[in-house]
Nucleic acid binder design. Structure first.
Lengths: 113, 113
DNA sequence: CGAATGCGTTAGTCATGACTAACGTATTTC
DNA sequence: GAAATACGTTAGTCATGACTAACGCATTCG
């Protein structure tokens, strides 16, 4: 697991990143948002730190984790590189198709979201 | 593995999606781009089809895979939902910081990429 | 009709990731 | 200084995913 894309894709880590983006937190504060143990969350945090998506600041006996903006920018670059021109065109096609065929299954599917 | 985000994050599947976005292909044509067996690629394709990111059209004894634009749109929506307002702000900060502190560690780190 | 081709399927292996429990360490509190 | 707190660390389990090999089915070709 060396790339930020794969690291950020895991559902638990996605939530962690969103929590930390809202505001930096300690490990216990983060773990309080989940049902699994603090150890599990700590390991997720260490992984996120290993790929440079978060960083920790030790203050007293606490470790305050925060998102690392530069790592986040790398993640965005990875996603952008994946989201090639062709993919973009296909999505655009999906939009126009959904607009022109409002009664198709894709349109109802869109409503349910 | 039910969400498109996790499914698309796997490196091999990322490449498959990009290949299919450029143009639809048969399983053998796709497998030719990789070192692993056709079976492995086929299973990746079935997984991608299961989450609705690709679809197959049977023509003769070939199965032509193509990206499913609607599924791709769902993936984009998932990524957008992950990429919250806060994450966006942090990335914007990274940009301005990189511009204002070109000699900082983050700037040299950027150069090495 | 028999051989070859294109794929999906299945079984089984191997590596890896997510997790818990127990422990060790630094720091604060009393 | 002893207990409590906040972590990281380690070991070990369990589930899952990536993969190969072998097989089966349909389709095309000779």
């Amino acid at each position: 697991m060396t790339d930020a894309f794969s690291a950020a894709a895991e559902p638990t880590r996605r939530r962690i990143l969103q929590l930390l983006a809202a505001s930096p937190r300690t490990v216990n504060e983060i773990a309080a948002e989940f049902t699994s143990t603090r150890s599990a969350i700590s390991q997720h945090l260490l992984l996120l730190a290993a790929v440079g998506l978060v960083e920790a600041e030790k203050v007293g006996r606490n470790r305050i984790y925060r998102v690392q903006p530069d790592g986040l920018r790398r993640l965005q670059a990875e996603i952008d590189r994946f989201w090639t021109h062709e993919l973009d065109l296909l999505v655009a096609d999906a939009h126009t198709l959904a607009a022109s065929r409002p009664t198709s299954h894709s349109a109802t599917d869109k409503d349910s979201r």
